[in-house]
Simulated scan of single mutants.
Amino acid sequence: MDQMLAARLHIPSRTLRIEEIRRPQPGPGQVLVKVEAAGVCLSDAHLIDGTLTPLLLDGDTVTLGHEVSGTIAETGAGVTAWSVGQRVVLYAGEVRDGVTYTRGVDYDGGWAEYTLSSATALTELPDSIPFEQGAIIPDAVSTPWGAITVTGAVRPAEAVGVWGAGGLGVHAVQLLRAIGACPIIAVDPSGTARERALAAGADLALDPADSALRETVAAATGGTGLAAAFDFAGVPAVREQALTVLAPKGRLVMVGLTDRPLTVTDGTRFSYLQQQILGHYGSDMPVALPQLLRLVQSGRLDFAGSISDVLPLARAAEAVDILNDRTTSPIRLVLRP
C-alpha cells in the first residue's frame, strides 16, 4: 500500500487531524522506518496550543512526533549501514547544512505509520529494550541527561535541585541518582509528582509554596545551597525561586521552555556569588543515545515505569488532552500506529 495514516498539525489554525496521506519514499541517504512507538511530549502540546511555532518548516502542516522507535522498512540509494527489519531509535532532530532541524516540528515526525530519517540520524535499539521505552529516550531521557552531564556538568556528591517532576524532571531525578548527585531535592506543587520523585530517587520532595523551602534546602545542604538547579517547568517563578537557593558559583540550568522573561531580583548578589544561568535544549544524540541505551541494557536504568499508557495513533488528540489535563499526572504517553 502507498497510503498511510498520520497525525498532522495545520499550523495556522493549530488543528490536529488524523489524515490518510501518501507513504513517503526514502531518497538517497535516507531510510523509511515503520513506526512501532512514538512518545507524546509537552512540546507537542505546545505546538498545538500555539506556545511553540516551527521556525524552519517548509509549508504550513507537519506530522508531529519527535520521540520515535521502529523497524527499518526500506533503504534509499547509497545506504549500506542499515538493513530491512533492524530495530532502531530515531534522533529527535537532524543537522542540515549546519542547522539543527527538530523532527515533528521542522519536518515530518513519527505520529504516523511510517516516517523518514536520514541514515545517520538513528541508532540501533537492542532487542532487550521494548519499543515503548526506546521511543522516549531521544527527548524525555536524553534531554535531562544532556542538561545534567554537559550543560550543568554535575559532579558526584554535588547538591542539586529539580523543579518540575513531570516527564523530563522525573527522569532527571533518576539520572542524577545514577551519577551520584547528593542530595537530590525535587520541587513540585503536585503531591503525586512529589511522591513520584521520591520513588525515582529524590532525597527530599518539596512544595514550592512551602514558606520554609529556603530553610529546608539550607539544612539539607549544610548551609551551602545547591550547586546546580534545573528548571523543567519553564515557569518564571520557578527560576526566581531556584536562584534564591543556589550556592556560590551555583548553576541554574533552564530546560523548560517559556517565552516569558527571566528576572534576577538581586543582581548584585548574583554577581558577587559568581552564579550562572545556562540555557539547555536537547542533547548530543550521537553521544547521548548510545550511552543511555547501554545503561538501560545493562540494567543500570529502567524506564518501564515511565510508560503511563499506550494509545493507538487514532487517539493522538485524546493523548494530548490527557497530558494537558494533568489530573492523572502521566509521565509519558505513547502512541502505537
Rank of each mutant, 00 (worst) to 15 (best):
S43W: 03
H46G: 05
C41K: 07
D106M: 01
A135M: 12
A81M: 12
H46S: 10
E19N: 11
R96N: 01
A135Y: 09
W111P: 04
I129A: 09
G76T: 03
D127Q: 10
A147T: 02
E67P: 04
V40L: 07
G152W: 00
E20P: 15
Q86D: 13
G104T: 07
T151M: 02
S128M: 05
A121P: 00
P144I: 03
I137D: 03
G104Y: 00
A77Y: 14
G93V: 08
L125R: 11
S142T: 10
L122Y: 04
S128F: 11
V68F: 08
T102E: 02
K34V: 05
A81F: 09
L52T: 09
E20I: 12
T51G: 07
S117M: 09
V84D: 01
L90C: 14
G50S: 12
I136S: 11
V105G: 04
S128D: 14
G27E: 07
Q30P: 05
Q25V: 15
E124V: 12
A140Q: 11
T75A: 13
G59Y: 00
S43R: 07
Q133V: 14
E94P: 01
D97L: 08
V105F: 14
P54A: 00
T100H: 12
V99D: 00
D106V: 00
V33C: 06
A73S: 14
L90F: 07
V89M: 07
R17V: 13
R14G: 07
T120L: 12
L64P: 06
L125D: 06
W145C: 09
V88T: 04
P126Y: 10
A92C: 09
V33M: 11
G76Y: 04
T123M: 03
T61R: 15
L55D: 07
V89N: 08
L64A: 02
I48P: 00
I48Q: 10
I137C: 02
L42I: 12
G78E: 08
W145P: 10
P24G: 02
R17N: 13
V31A: 05
G39H: 13
K34C: 15
R22A: 15
W145V: 11
L56A: 01
G134E: 06
T120D: 13
L64E: 00
S118R: 13
R96L: 03
W145D: 11
E124R: 14
L42F: 15
G146I: 02
V141P: 03
A112H: 05
Y114K: 02
P28F: 01
